[in-house]
Design a protein around this nucleic acid. Structure first.
Lengths: 238, 238
DNA sequence: CGGCCAGTTGAGTGTGGTCAATCGTTGTGG
DNA sequence: CCACAACGATTGACCACACTCAACTGGCCG
């Protein structure tokens, strides 16, 4: 399966900014053996394709990668964004279940799946950590299903911004100043909306004074309580 | 969780009409120790609540259980239906991430999570099997995100019916004769629709001759190719 | 300067939701 | 045993939220 929107991998220098996002330590420190290499990938590079044999897993060291699935006619659903410290691909799945494409210039640590499978036998703690990763991935997926199936556009946007804010906080950054390296179209495909609706809803939030933005990729949260209320559907959307 | 159906697919005995779907062997045969008991649960019984401490895991031996999440104002998203052979709850999560409620009279085998955690240390193959279960659960969740975010109502219904048909086939039953123990409202909450839309779409499929139904809970697939085309969005919905 | 792309904004439409009435089945109590 | 209540399913009329199509803006780079 090929991605429709696989834009030519022009090595465009990503407009700064993702510099701050970097994981401090490898996620699986015990796996130096199976770590093949750390490679740098420019934006729009496709790391792997859905349906291809899953030879490797990748740990995001720096940058952001989006994972998505496509319908036969080209509609896209972004499954998630992988930030530094996160793992893409699964140990036991024979094929990739989604396509991974670099959003903001990234460094990826490649792990051999075969090697990992062998390590599973010898390293007792490893499967436990993998289980841990998958447990939270599954919980996140369930939360996203609730969002996709039952939330309105304003609720989706508010939830997304709050999630990003939390991620910022976990990285020790200012949770009120979000840098969003993905495009409006990416956000739309993540939330089950269109670019226009994303743009409109964000404009509306700005007009209300809930958020503020100078550039499209940089959002300041002014009223986090209003955002929380909106995410939970407590408040009138418009 | 298709991997869960790696149970003996030999037997074809399909007992009593009201959903006497039953798995013949426990999913974790090595876990007789941690298996507390097998309890019978009537329809509408709640097995566990989202947010409660996850003391136990449950294997569905017979019947069907739905798992769902709620928004603060009561909207519901069904995360999945658990059929015989499938596991509910996770080993490493401290709290349940969703609520589980019996759809069709069920028998559930309870497994102590504490005991399972201990068994993880001593039984080398166990974590591998758990990883396997979670891997397919995650793949399924991703597929469902694509459905919820990007498919139209007819595509959702068609996809759902095909999924159910596949499940039938894996159980060794007639894949063209579906028994759906869940209500239209359950189906709607699983697909991110309303009961009315589910009902309308099913009626439309019937009118077109794609499916046939005498009772609401029993659907015969007459034209599986048309259904496949519809699920992929190849065909005009109406 | 001009092309390109992401983003924004506007106008109009349509899919699916809301509200409401009716039908059909099941189960219960007089 | 039948009447009736309760509930799920179906169908219709209408509406609104989000999508489509389109125009325009602003930033970036050749």
């Amino acid at each position: 399966m090929q991605a429709l929107n696989t834009i030519s991998a022009t090595a465009t220098a990503q407009p700064r900014a993702s510099g701050g996002i970097e994981s401090r330590s490898p996620f699986f420190p015990e796996l130096q053996a199976s770590a093949q290499s750390v490679q740098a990938c420019a934006a729009h590079t496709t790391v792997f394709y859905e349906g291809d044999p899953a030879a490797s897993l990748y740990e995001v060291v720096q940058g952001v990668v989006k994972m998505y699935k496509l319908t036969p006619d080209g509609r896209r659903q972004i499954i998630g964004f992988a930030f530094p410290g996160e793992i893409m691909g699964s140990v036991l799945g024979e094929d990739y279940t989604c396509t991974a494409e670099v959003v903001a210039a990234a460094k990826l640590r490649r792990l051999s799946r075969q090697q990992l499978l062998r390590d599973l036998q010898t390293q007792p703690g490893l499967s436990r950590r993998l289980l841990d990763v998958m447990t939270s991935a599954l919980a996140l997926a369930q939360e996203q299903m609730l969002l996709l199936g039952r939330k309105s556009a304003p609720e989706k946007i508010a939830s997304f911004l709050l999630d990003q804010s939390e991620k910022c906080e976990e990285r020790g950054e200012n949770p009120n100043l979000l840098f969003l390296p993905m495009t409006r179209c990416d956000i739309a495909d993540y939330l089950g909306l269109t670019t226009e609706t994303v743009s409109r809803t964000i404009s509306c939030l700005k007009k209300r004074g809930v958020i503020d933005l100078d550039q499209a990729t940089r959002i300041r949260i002014r009223d986090i309580d209003a955002l929380t209320d909106l995410a939970e559907g407590d408040e009138q959307p418009f």
